[in-house]
């Protein structure tokens, strides 16, 4: 099974985000970067599928943030091939452009399965996964919480989560694109010594797919932090008093019987 995983770098929210001087975008240069959490799950799911029945895992990432570290970590975890797409800008590409870039890299690989995190917290135009599926002309299911091989080759069984904690099981024909919310197990830990070893031995293939940015519609007029509202009530007093008041409030709102 030829599996492709898309890894994205997103701003780490433990740091205070800063706005650019024009007030229309983030100060991307001031942010520190972290692997997108659901992409990490997508990678884990890919590795689990490979371990369950063979295949290759190819990781594709844009040269942005600390993508090299993420690619090396992926290699240390067991990814077979690492592709880094050229990107020279300070800010990440707009969604349509990103989809086109990834699609251009992924298509020649003839994947059986493309796993993408179902969302990233810097997405403001919609989510990448279905857009990428459309660009590749492949079927798509999102909000996936586990992917398994089936007896018949050319198919996978997936669990999709619906609102209200309803789970559905699908059998999908391959090739397909899946938007991963969570792998069947949490992402594995990979020791630093293995990451260091991978950094020495793993080969990153640099690609310049040369896709021009498509014309885009919406433009951001203003980006700002939400103003502090009046709605919050601070509870004060001893722990017992606060606890009693919380219980009272929960009961008032019918959350406690």
């Amino acid at each position: 099974m030829n599996i492709i995983v898309v890894l994205r770098q997103v701003p780490d929210l433990i740091e205070q985000l800063e706005l650019d001087a024009d007030g229309k975008s983030l100060d991307w240069g001031a942010a520190s970067y972290i692997i997108n959490e659901s992409d990490d799950h997508a990678l884990e799911q890919a590795l689990l599928l490979k371990e369950a029945g063979g295949g290759t895992v190819t990781v594709v990432g844009l040269d942005f943030g600390n993508i090299e570290g993420s690619l090396h970590t992926a290699a240390a975890k067991g990814a077979d091939r690492l592709i880094r797409l050229a990107w020279g800008e300070d800010a990440p590409p707009r969604l349509s452009h990103a989809a086109a870039l990834y699609a251009a890299a992924i298509k020649p690989q003839n994947p059986d399965l493309v796993l993408v995190g179902v969302q990233a917290h810097d997405e403001w135009e919609g989510v990448l996964a279905p857009w990428l599926a459309a660009t590749l002309g492949l079927p798509y299911v999102g909000v996936i919480r586990g992917v398994w091989r089936t007896e018949t080759p050319g198919k996978v069984r997936v669990h999709k989560e619906f609102p209200g904690a309803v789970m559905a099981e699908f059998t999908m024909k391959l090739p397909a694109v899946l938007g991963i919310l969570g792998a069947e197990k949490p992402p594995r830990y990979v020791p630093v010594s293995r990451i260091r070893a991978a950094a020495k031995s793993a080969q990153i293939v640099d690609q310049n797919v040369g896709v021009q940015p498509p014309a885009v519609g919406a433009q951001i007029e203003q980006l700002y932090f939400p103003a502090k509202g009046e709605g919050a009530t601070m509870l004060t007093g001893s722990a017992e008093e606060v606890a009693a008041r919380i219980a009272e409030l929960l009961a008032e709102r019918g959350l406690l019987r």
Binding site: K77, P186, R188, Y189, V190, P191, S193, R194
Partner: peptide, 15 residues
């Protein structure tokens, strides 16, 4: 750790 078998809380701390 080398085999990736890490206690849950420890994994968070190590990350």
């Amino acid at each position: 750790i080398d085999q990736g078998k890490v206690e849950e809380g420890v994994q968070d701390a190590l990350m």
